[in-house]
């Protein structure tokens, strides 16, 4: 019965279907990036610099979306860019989700001094803007994937912590929690096997939106060459590389930008769609 209602809601939510489709396509491209890329994304072709996309007059066969200033195939770089973005997004989101959820549940369930400390910590994370932190950490300590993940987790964990805390606070005095306690369950047991399943809805929605935000932040950092390490292609560093050739080869920046937009849009649609499906009472 439950499943049937869910399925009907899923099929009715255009946003969800649209988002799911885009995200699945993105995942497919990211997973099979190496097989899908028609050329070596890092191979220079000095004789084929700044070629226009194939359907243009000056286009060159075999390079569907044209080439960049060193003759690298843009389509291949775009496909590899999907892989870089998804890798960063996946790792950062799940680390933030794990950290934020655990701390949020503890804050909401325990209350008191722990709650105050954890909530101040979320405020500290919010007070340091992502880009500021990103520039400082990546430029001073070096552009490694570990540093990138540290920046992302510091910037995004508090979204999950706040959501989890508020949800937990609204259910921590319900009968099932009291019953567990009366039966002698430990706090850890109550927090993670009784309460956690009841806060997943909001966290799932938050996760989907976080993916989109992480992709955007990664692109901005990569634009400054402080994100994904060169020469690995990322949509951000493709835009940066194309910027100087804007007047003669606009496709070098338009293509990665569209890829970025579609990816982020997919996750935004999915997040909104999930909200419609899982929590139809809420309008936002």
């Amino acid at each position: 019965m439950q499943g049937k209602i869910m399925l009907r809601r899923i099929l009715r939510s255009k946003q969800f279907m649209m988002g799911l489709l885009l995200v699945l396509v993105l995942c497919f491209i990211a997973v099979f990036a190496d097989q899908l890329a028609p050329h070596d994304p890092n191979e220079y072709h000095p004789d084929a610099r700044l070629q226009a996309p194939e359907w243009f007059e000056r286009g060159r066969e075999g390079y569907i979306l044209g080439t960049d200033s060193t003759g690298r195939d843009i389509l291949s770089r775009m496909i590899i860019g999907a892989k870089s973005s998804m890798k960063v997004a996946l790792l950062s989101t799940f680390l933030s989700l794990a950290l934020g959820t655990v701390l949020g549940i503890i804050a909401g369930f325990r209350g008191g001094i722990l709650d105050i400390i954890i909530m101040r910590a979320t405020e500290v994370s919010m007070a340091v803007p992502t880009m500021t932190l990103g520039v400082v950490i990546m430029a001073i300590f070096g552009t490694s994937i570990v540093n990138l993940l540290i920046v992302m987790v510091i910037s995004f964990w508090m979204n999950f912590a706040r959501v989890a805390r508020n949800e937990v606070m609204s259910i921590r005095n319900r009968e099932f929690v009291q019953a567990s306690r009366a039966l002698g369950a430990t706090s850890a047991h109550i927090m993670f096997t009784q309460i956690l399943p009841n806060v997943t809805t909001s966290l799932i929605i938050c996760t989907s939106n976080c993916f989109g935000s992480v992709i955007l932040v990664e692109s901005t950092l990569s634009y400054l060459y402080l994100g994904v390490q060169l020469p690995t292609a990322s949509w951000g560093n493709m835009i940066a590389a194309g910027k100087d050739f804007l007047a003669i080869a606009p496709w070098t920046v338009i293509v990665p930008g569209i890829a970025l937009m579609i990816a982020v849009m997919g996750f935004n649609f999915l997040g909104d769609g999930l909200r419609d499906v899982l929590d139809p009472k809420q309008t936002r």
Binding site: I239, P256, M261, V264
Partner: peptide
């Protein structure tokens, strides 16, 4: 709104340059 929310800030900057300057 959805379109605007999904556009990367660096891309918007570069597009603005492309349209209004170039």
């Amino acid at each position: 709104v959805v379109i605007l929310q999904s556009m990367a800030v660096v891309w918007v900057c570069v597009l603005l340059l492309l349209v209004f300057v170039v």
